[in-house]
Design a protein around this nucleic acid. Sequence first.
DNA 1: GTTAGGG
DNA 2: CCCTAAC
Length: 504
Amino acid sequence: MEDHSAIPVLEDEAIQFDFLLVDPQDDHVSVDAFLCIHRNNSEKCMQMDDIPCKFGGINFGTDREQLHPKAGEVPDIKASEIEAGEFEILNGLSSFCEDYLLDGEYEENGTELNHDSGAGLLKVVSGNNNQTDRPGANETSQKSDSSATTDQVDVCQRGLNVNDSDLHGIFSCTGDSEKSLDNCWFQYPTFTVENMEEDVSSVFSDGNGRLMSVKSGLISEQLPCRVTANLENRHIFPGQEVIESRLHIDGAQTHRGIQGCSAENHEEKRLRKPPKRFIDELSEPKSKSVCKKREVSAPNSKDKLSNVKAAKHHYKKSKAEVSFAEDPIGIAIQVPFGPLEQNESKVEEDSSPVKVKLDSQPLVVSSPKLKDLELDREAPMSESEEDNTTAVKSEEDGFGRRKHHVLWTVSEVKMLIDGVSQYGVGRWSRIKKDLFSSSAHRTPVDLKDKWRNLLKASRAQRDSKKGEDGKRNLAWRPLPKSILRRVNELATIHPYPRDLRSKC
DNA sequence: GTTAGGG
DNA sequence: CCCTAAC
């Protein structure tokens, strides 16, 4: 055990890769670039000038002696190739390279170049890395979901302090967006430079043996010292201005990426690979060539198609939407359940003070408009049965997109119940007209659906009561007994279509 | 246009 | 909440 712990990231001289840059047109996988790792000693890192060694056409400032292929672990690397400046892994990995992206799934092909000291070094590892198998990877990634953004930044700041994970870069470029992919300058994974004293933010291979860097937001030819892998956004055009470069760890997959020397990262935090939408949103609209458009699932109607288009269009245009989608923190207001406003429904059992909680529900995605919430402040309620009903902003839904989820408020539920008791089940339009005329977002169909859900809830509650008492195995939010009881009553009085009312 | 019901 | 068949 070395002194990794002190400065986890870069204390170690070497970084392990289990992915390599690949020329997809080649039958072999060749190293196009690599990482050099020294936090405070950039001079120690490779210099273009004194490079005896070439990797896939890229020069590295490292002495040959510094490369120590582990015996038996480098079956595919021939010394002669290294000497000749060619480092190729002949593992038939080309299949992985169709997308110019090596996902590092070549676990069997243990290849390691070990460099133990001094100037920079490359360690390519693909074999049985200790931390490779992570049964809990998925769970971990899910747990860290909400903090994904933060962690991404963190990863950036800490440079190569990435353990056993894949890095994916998110690159946003400005510049000539009209260029076709054919003119694409780079079609290789890129590297991102971290913690440089200079304003170098990224480096990548141009595919011709040159290692380019992004300095001061512009692509230039300069050899950086410290880079992290950037497996995505492989299409960079000359002259493009890089305005954003972010990294995240792919937590959805189990293969390894960079293995840093971090002890602190032992927990192996994994970040979920951002959804395509996330990537799209991070990119400037101009950089269409960088982030390919999303595929639209075949709609089955013209309306749907137009809706989707409208939605997409809206998405691109609406910054608010973007930030809203990215904002993991929303405001949730729990609306307590209470007795029906207009009737005598009595609250059974304990009636405790109203509770209005903020931020207690992770469900909520956006900040609701408070005015849309109906808070029954005067309504007493059962503590254990407080309603989680949360209203979510639902405006701006005029673009055909799926309506924002607007949770039913207690008042609405009560209104619905009243409506049913008044007009009977099935008169949704009537109920809507009479009782929900003010709430534009509730359609007769919504009322019908809600009633159906209420029925299910009440039935389930009854069932669970029959079985085990205390145990509440309801999948949905608990509803106040007072409400459910009324639903039950009404369901008895006004039979709902078909077998749905399998109770009574 | 409404409603029922499946997804 | 969406979609669609049936009315």
